[in-house]
Design a protein around this nucleic acid. Sequence first.
DNA 1: GCAGGAGATGTGAGCGTTAACAACAAGGTA
DNA 2: TACCTTGTTGTTAACGCTCACATCTCCTGC
Lengths: 340, 340
Amino acid sequence: MSPSLERRPPVMADVATRAGVSHQTVSRVLNDHPNVRAETRERVLAAIRELGYRRNMVARALVTRHTRTLGVVSFDTTLYGPASTVYGIEQAARAAGYFVSMVSLKTIDTAGVRDALGYLAEQAVDGIVVVAPQRSAAPALAGAPTDIPVVAVEGSHTGDVSVVSVDQIEGARLATRHLLDLGHETVWHIAGPSDWLEADGRIEGWREVLSAAGRTAPELLSGDWSPRSGYEAGLRLAGTPGVTAVFVANDQMALGMLRAFAELGVRVPEQISVVGFDDIPESEFFTPPLTTIRQDFGAVGKYSIEVLLRQMEAGAEWSQERHVVPPRFVARTSTAPFRA
Amino acid sequence: MSPSLERRPPVMADVATRAGVSHQTVSRVLNDHPNVRAETRERVLAAIRELGYRRNMVARALVTRHTRTLGVVSFDTTLYGPASTVYGIEQAARAAGYFVSMVSLKTIDTAGVRDALGYLAEQAVDGIVVVAPQRSAAPALAGAPTDIPVVAVEGSHTGDVSVVSVDQIEGARLATRHLLDLGHETVWHIAGPSDWLEADGRIEGWREVLSAAGRTAPELLSGDWSPRSGYEAGLRLAGTPGVTAVFVANDQMALGMLRAFAELGVRVPEQISVVGFDDIPESEFFTPPLTTIRQDFGAVGKYSIEVLLRQMEAGAEWSQERHVVPPRFVARTSTAPFRA
DNA sequence: GCAGGAGATGTGAGCGTTAACAACAAGGTA
DNA sequence: TACCTTGTTGTTAACGCTCACATCTCCTGC
């Protein structure tokens, strides 16, 4: 078999031969090195075009020790929040000239996160963003490989990794305060799963505003973020006397609650006011349109890449940063003044 | 400066020295080569553990010409459909021992897809899945690099790439037939954006069933998948006499329509029956719960990886495959028999 | 008119791994 | 005993690129 039959993609040396220069000059052109004569550059570029040459990033990475790839570890990217965050991360990363290698975890646990970090380290990514909103991910982050910069999104502040997150406590404050301002005596809360840091923050903000106003916090209910769990909480609340205002920890559970209330003939907002959290695209069209707290997931993704790039530049002695994105109150028609 | 201060991660040669063997033997152990004495293997593994050695996949990729990375090009992974599909792809890829490099496009156009494919080719991915449901992506796929296997998800069947998709036509048939079976004289349809192949398929199935039943198809309305566009279509339809059944091309637009009907006092399903498409997690809790067509996005992702891996094994002469995932009718309470 | 410097290009080594082949020991067969 | 097989290990050469350094040319200034 003739070796010429083995059609291999052209390499730098082929381009060099064709352009009548050395491979090093080709490299210079490709890397925008200043000291190349314009005419030579043109000749090299022409050869590249003619041969359909594409630089082998693997060989390049071997010597530069940079893959220009960032790793992203995330939990269930089917959910709107993680999906939006990862989308923001990906956009920002590409804008900065980086690729993104994804690892989506089905369940977040220390071993899962540690494995994911291990995979990515082996892949030699230049940096890692971990979107791990559960408390159980923290130990894995604490024991992360020290030679790769890591940024946590919505993660806990333990360990020495930088964190970018939405101010959950402030969001909960906004929601609770809004309901109190409408004249409600107190506000019920449907929390997220107990392992989630976001759920914690929302409980904290809710409790804080309530006690600052001298109100007693009602019994805490909680769900698992799903519409169904909100539905079940709604069924329970509808049978509880004296409930006039509910702050639900996310929009999907709020949707389930609205459904439960509709089935039982409880009118929203006339009888009970409901506030959600997240502001998913659907919320505006719920029945009734949901008053909620908007999280700017895109901004979170963007900032996480900013912080990560900064750490990558800083090299060995990066400093731990924290970036907090403010939430925003979005008024719709699922809340109304309290009427006895 | 002493060179020992330059703490570099250990390489294969370090492991070899420590274990008292050659680097090639270390390589053999790492690659599960059979011809290594058990005792030697143990010694090497011990050295690996002690040194915390991790194989450099970049160097490996340079010589094997395989990166064990798959590229995924997708459109707006914020949407439930693409997000779920990509999630399925990622899970299946990792199960098969592959990493996933993501490129999310903000808008799908020929240039965007071509660029994305170019990036991934440069990254030397072993295969590419393109989730490009728009017709305008097709030309880019047709001119895709021929040396990397490509599978299109929900893509058009032109060109020589393999395609995995949900049977959109059949889904539309199920929806339309269901409404006719309930006694409705005809069925209105709110289509998706005209550039989307899925929108086309749903129109086709709808038309087919209608004409097979000898009914005339009403004027075709269309939206952009967003709840708002469904809301606007709903406003229009509510003012149109004789509308008793609507098949909406996705659940989000159906949500908007339900909202419009609620505002105008049109009762669903008593006055108008509504069927959606997708079965997003929220649909079950709409007011009323939405009858819809479920797409198994996870299966689509899984099959796309299966097909892709098959093509990668086949090497140069792979054959074009098509895999169609059947949709499923999901009955809820947004539809009812026609009552004059 | 020639030293000195700046710009443009080429040469050789090395990144860390796997592939191909060589080498050697141990055991079985003629 | 000689010989061939089989298993185990080592040696050397790529893979395609960038880096450090060498070389050569041309321009400037005294």
